[in-house]
Simulated assay, not measured.
Amino acid sequence: MATLQEDAVVATTDPAPTIPPGDHTPGHWAMGWRRFKRDRFLVLIGLPGMVLLLVFQYLPLLGTIIAFKDYQPYIGILDSPWVGLENFRVIFNGDPLLMNALKNTLIISLIQIVIAFPVPIALALLLNSLLSENIKRVVQSVLYLPHFLSWVVIVAIFQHLLGSAGLVNTGLRDLGLPTLQLIGNPDLFIPLISAQVIWKDAGWGTIIFLAALSRVDASLYEAASVDGASRMRQMWHVTLPAIRGVAVLLLILRLGDALTVGFEQIILQQPAVGLVASEVLDTYVYNNGIIGGAWGVATAVGLVKAAVGIILILGANRLAHAMGESGLYTRG
Rank of each mutant, 00 (worst) to 15 (best):
S278I: 11
A8Y: 11
I115Q: 11
E222N: 04
W295G: 04
P17F: 13
N185H: 08
V197A: 08
L106A: 12
F68C: 12
I113K: 09
D23N: 00
S129D: 15
P120T: 09
A16R: 15
P60T: 05
G184D: 01
M50Y: 07
V155T: 12
R40S: 04
G332A: 06
R318N: 00
L182K: 06
K69N: 06
E86D: 08
G94P: 01
S219R: 12
T283W: 09
I135Y: 14
T105P: 14
I111M: 15
A101R: 14
Y329E: 01
R233K: 13
A211P: 09
V114A: 14
A212E: 08
S80F: 10
G292Q: 04
I108A: 15
P81T: 05
D23L: 10
P191C: 08
A116K: 15
I243D: 15
V273L: 03
M1T: 01
A307Q: 01
P21C: 00
L97E: 09
A11K: 14
L54H: 04
A223H: 08
I19D: 03
L98R: 02
L275K: 06
A165C: 00
H147W: 14
G256T: 12
S141R: 15
L4I: 07
M323W: 07
N134P: 00
A223F: 06
A322H: 04
Q270N: 07
L281N: 05
T239P: 06
Y58S: 03
S326H: 03
P73Y: 10
F158N: 08
P20H: 14
A30V: 01
T105F: 15
I65P: 00
L192R: 11
H237K: 12
V55C: 06
I108G: 13
N87D: 08
L97Y: 10
G166Q: 02
L130K: 13
L172E: 04
P191N: 05
V155S: 12
P21A: 02
R137L: 07
V308K: 08
A67I: 12
S214Y: 13
N317H: 11
Y329R: 05
L281M: 10
D187Y: 09
A212V: 11
K136T: 05
V238D: 00
M1L: 07
R215Y: 01
R318G: 01
Q181R: 14
W29E: 07
L162A: 02
L131D: 03
I113N: 07
Y74M: 13
G84H: 10
L97N: 09
V114L: 15
K103T: 13
D14P: 00
L54D: 00
L172W: 07
I198D: 06
L213R: 13
W82N: 05
S129Q: 15
V55Q: 05
H28P: 00
I157T: 04
P241I: 14
H147V: 05
P48E: 09
Q234W: 05
I75M: 08
G203S: 09
L127R: 13
W199P: 03
V10G: 02
A16W: 11
G324F: 08
P186I: 11
M99L: 15
A165K: 05
S132C: 06
